[in-house]
C-alpha cells in the first residue's frame, strides 16, 4: 500500500511542487569539463586544461562538422530559392546568390503548376489549414478524455481496448487504407476534408491516448480521490481539475499533431480529391510534375514554404517538441 504518489520517470510526469519546507537539497558538484578529466586521472590531478584541449577539439569539432552537414540541405534550399534560373544553370548549388530574387517564392506560392491547375501552393496551404485545425482539436479532445477515462475511471475491458489500440498503432497503414475508403464512402465522406479529419483523428488516437493516459496516471491518485469526496463527477474532475493542471501535455500533444498532420502525405493523397489536396501532396505534384522545364528555384521555394509550418512550430516549441517525441517514442 504505497501512498507516495507514483511519479513517472520520464519528464512527462506531472511534477509535484517541491516542498516549501524541504530541507534536503542535494548539492551537486559543479560539473565542468576539466573537473571530469581530473576525476578520471586520479587524485594527483593536473592543472586545469585550456579550452582547446584535445578532448574538446574532438568533441566540438565532431559536433560542428555534423551540425554543418545537417544544416547543409536547408542552406542549399534557401540559396537555390533566391537565385534566378540562369545563375543556377551555370553556378554551384552551394554558392550564395549573386543576385537575390524573390520571384521563385511568389511563383511557388501563387503560379506554379501541378499538372492539374496552376494556382501554386496557396491552394494546398489553405487546404492543409482546413484539415489541420479541426483534426488537431478533435483528436486532442477525444484522446485526452479517453486517456483520462483510462487512467482514472477504468472499467471492465477498458485496458483491453486500449491494448488493441496500441497494437493497432504498429499495423502498417497500408493494411487499413482500403477498408477506410469503404467506410468513408458508406457515410458519404470519401474525398472530403471532413473524411480526412476523421482519418487523422483515428490514426492520432493511439499515441495521443497513450500520452494523456500516462500523464493523467502520473497525477497523484489522491488528488482524484479528493475531488470525488468533494462531489465532482467524471466531467467536472476532467474540466476543473485535470485539464487546468495538464496544460503542458496539451501543448505537447498539439505540437505532435500539428507537425504530424501537416507532414502527412499518404492520407492526403488517398482520401481527398485533387482540388482538396493538402500542401505536401500539392508540393510533390509541383516538383515532380513531368511537364515543362524544371524550375529548381521555384521547387526549392515551394519546398521551404511547405516545411515552414512544422519548422516554425519546432523552433518556437524548443524543448516541448523534444518532450513530445520522447513521449511519442516511449511506448507503454
Amino acid at each position: 500500500m504505497t501512498k507516495a504518489p507514483h511519479l513517472m520517470k520520464n519528464s512527462l510526469g506531472y511534477a509535484a511542487e517541491p516542498e516549501a519546507n524541504d530541507g534536503d537539497v542535494t548539492l551537486r558538484p559543479a560539473e565542468s569539463p576539466f573537473q571530469q578529466v581530473r576525476l578520471e586521472e586520479g587524485p594527483a590531478g593536473r592543472k586545469p586544461r585550456p579550452f582547446l584541449s584535445r578532448r574538446n577539439i574532438i568533441v566540438y569539432g565532431t559536433l560542428i562538422f555534423v551540425s554543418l552537414y545537417y544544416l547543409l540541405p536547408l542552406y542549399v534550399m534557401i540559396v537555390t530559392s533566391l537565385k534566378g534560373m540562369p545563375e543556377i544553370r551555370v553556378g554551384n548549388i552551394f554558392a550564395p546568390p549573386l543576385e537575390i530574387t524573390f520571384q521563385p517564392w511568389v511563383k511557388a506560392w501563387s503560379e506554379a503548376c501541378t499538372g492539374l491547375n496552376c494556382d501554386g501552393l496557396s491552394r494546398g496551404f489553405f487546404n492543409s489549414v482546413q484539415i489541420l485545425v479541426p483534426s488537431v482539436i478533435l483528436s486532442i479532445i477525444i484522446a485526452s478524455v479517453n486517456g483520462y477515462a483510462l487512467a482514472n475511471w477504468r472499467f471492465k475491458g477498458s485496458e483491453t481496448f486500449f491494448a488493441i489500440l496500441i497494437v493497432g498503432a504498429f499495423i502498417p497503414y497500408q493494411v487499413m487504407l482500403y477498408p477506410i475508403v469503404i467506410m468513408l464512402r458508406e457515410i458519404g465522406l470519401y474525398g472530403s476534408l471532413t473524411g480526412l479529419v476523421i482519418v487523422h483523428t483515428i490514426f492520432g488516437m493511439p499515441i495521443l491516448t497513450l500520452l494523456f493516459r500516462n500523464y493523467f496516471a502520473s497525477v497523484p491518485q489522491e488528488l482524484f480521490k479528493a475531488a470525488r469526496v468533494d462531489g465532482a463527477g467524471f466531467w467536472r474532475i476532467y474540466f476543473q481539475i485535470m485539464v487546468p493542471m495538464s496544460l503542458p501535455i496539451f501543448v505537447v500533444a498539439m505540437i505532435l499533431q500539428v507537425t504530424g498532420i501537416w507532414n502527412d502525405f499518404l492520407f492526403g493523397v488517398v482520401y481527398t480529391k485533387p482540388d482538396l489536396y493538402p500542401m505536401t501532396v500539392q508540393l510533390n505534384n509541383i516538383v515532380n510534375s513531368t511537364q515543362g522545364v524544371k524550375e529548381y528555384n521555384v521547387n526549392m521555394a515551394a519546398t521551404i514554404l511547405t516545411g515552414l509550418v512544422p519548422l516554425t512550430v519546432y523552433f518556437i516549441s524548443g524543448k516541448l517538441f523534444v518532450r513530445g517525441i520522447a513521449a511519442g517514442a516511449v511506448k507503454g
Partner: peptide
C-alpha cells in the same frame, strides 16, 4: 453510495490540494 454523499471529509497524505 458516492463518496460525496456519505457525509465524510477526507485528508490525504500528499495533501491532494488542487494546484491551480
Amino acid at each position: 453510495e458516492e463518496p460525496s454523499k456519505r457525509g465524510i471529509g477526507m485528508v490525504f497524505q500528499s495533501y491532494a490540494l488542487y494546484p491551480q
